[in-house]
Design a protein around this nucleic acid. Structure first.
Lengths: 147, 147
DNA sequence: TTTTCTGCAAATGCTTTGCATGGGA
DNA sequence: TCCCATGCAAAGCATTTGCAGAAAA
């Protein structure tokens, strides 16, 4: 997973360039975000780092996410129920497939999206800047469990 | 706008069938939801009905939306910043184009979505149940204003 | 040493809920 | 009359913010 490490370095460098200080908490947050295993929630990040730094505060997680978002280095997948997820590995808009049972998040490859963007632009005369596409369903292992 | 009126009747009938009482507040909420002009927010609904019923409470709007959602008769467009919007005219999942300046919401016609759903299903082995697709950009009138 | 960052706690903003009253059917 | 619905206020929850002390650089 050299790619994840590269992302980690990129984000840290960008923060340094901005004059931000590199604290252990910040390092931990960037590491988890860029690994992006399972597209972690704020709570995921918080509890993982709390193991190493028991004084870790939720506010610090939130503040760092705001910071890294402002650098454009993390994609926020906001959900209205407050279960937001973050992707610092692929920080640009891309489609997601989400299992409504186990909450797993998968990134599919979709060729047709670019064409769709043009289609929308032509039809509505909007200048399209970004998008959000989520599919919700049941993943294969949850289908087998068949509950 | 006979279609909107038909939707209104459908929803009211469904509520009656459920044994719900038809109060003036509820009528107002269903009317605004099924007209769905501009995909209203909770606050839109609240302030419009408050003109007729000054005692109207926000809690009543929320409770009725929960009720109507549970009938599958309104689509909730949830946003993480709490500016949720509702569509009782087309209560099924469909793409939206949203102006980030004036917050206008437009429903485009997209043929390619069904194919995309199959593509995702084949690739990920998920059983796809629903989806959410939003495009964000700048509408033509906001482009002219050019701010 | 200087400036930013962190941890804590209080504040915020949307949404939900408990409870007593009011109003459909 | 009998419940369901409403209004109000309090409670919930995720997130943000103010402030003083801690830690990068």
């Amino acid at each position: 997973m050299a790619e994840h490490k590269k992302r980690f370095e990129t984000v840290i460098q960008k923060l340094k360039d901005r004059g931000c200080k590199i604290t252990p908490q910040r390092l931990g947050i960037v590491k988890i975000l860029t690994e992006s295993e399972g597209h972690p929630t704020v709570e995921d990040i918080y509890s993982r780092i709390k193991k190493e730094f028991p004084t870790m505060s939720l506010a610090t997680v939130y503040r760092n996410i705001v910071l890294i978002k402002s650098c454009g280095e993390v994609l926020e997948l906001g959900f209205p129920d407050g279960s937001n997820r973050y992707d610092g590995y692929k920080p640009y808009p891309h489609p997601h497939v989400i299992c409504i049972k186990c909450k797993k998040v998968v990134d599919p490859d979709l060729d047709s999206l670019e064409g769709m963007k043009k289609e929308v632009s032509t039809e509505t005369h909007f200048k399209i800047l970004t998008h959000r596409l989520d599919f919700f369903g049941i993943c294969s292992s949850c289908q087998e469990k068949n509950e």
